[in-house]
Structures are given as C-alpha cells and as structure tokens.
Design a protein around this nucleic acid. Structure first.
Length: 107
DNA sequence: CTCTTGACGCCGG
DNA sequence: TCCGGCGCCAAGA
C-alpha cells in the first residue's frame, strides 16, 4: 500500500469516527466494514496513530467491552454524553450501536 | 523473506 | 456469561 493510499484510508476512518453522534458508538469491525479495504485491526492501528483529533472513545469493541487503552478517560465522556452503559465498564451495544445508514432507520 | 505484535472478531467449551 | 484459542491484515524489526 502506498503512502497516499494509507493517508486516504486514515482520512476516511477519521471522518467516519467524527460522524458518530454523542451517546452513540461504533465497533472497529463496523468501521472496517464501511470503510472497507482492511480489517478491524487496521482501524485500531489508525486510531492508535492518528486518533488524537477525533472522538476516539466512541469507537469500542464489537462486544461492547472497552479497549484497555481507553482507560478511565473514556468513561468520563460516556457519563457526559449519556452513552447507554451495561454493567460498570461495558457499553450496551444494543442501544448504543450506530451506523451512518441507521440515521433514520432504527426504531 | 520470516517472525512478532497489535485501540479486533468470532466460535466453542 | 466468562475464558481461551484461532483467524485476519498490515507494519516494524
């Protein structure tokens, strides 16, 4: 993969993450599926390197568990944005899951 | 060119 | 529901 393509991929991922509304989250796999090209790991790699300028806390694991690196910082945001939590440090994906297509679809 | 690692995901026990 | 194992894709050593 060329440098330019890498940059384009990164840009696409970051743009999608920025599009996630407050109180909602997306899984790495969902992002990877929409962006295409790579896999969930690639999305994670991008977030780790260039996720500083986007709402990184709105990207979580598919099962709702929080990545270790999110730490306590993310929890603050969830509390502030009223993100649907399940248990203590887990997100209720059933309610919090979001996709650009579901903007007017979810009931 | 091969081996290891990582902000992951799914399946089986 | 919790744990462990295997699969995937790309980057770095």
């Amino acid at each position: 993969m060329d440098t330019d393509e890498r940059a384009a991929y990164v840009e696409t991922v970051l743009r999608l993450v920025e599009a996630i509304p407050p109180g909602r989250v997306m899984s790495y796999g969902a992002v990877a599926d929409l962006v295409g090209g790579g896999g969930p790991r690639q999305v994670g790699q991008v977030m780790a390197r260039h996720g500083g300028g986007v709402p990184w806390w709105r990207v979580v694991r598919a099962d709702g568990t929080l990545p270790v690196s999110h730490g306590r910082r993310a929890h603050e945001h969830y509390q502030r944005e009223s993100t649907p939590l399940a248990g203590d440090a887990r997100i209720d994906m059933r309610r919090a899951r979001w996709t650009p297509h579901s903007v007017g679809g979810v009931c």
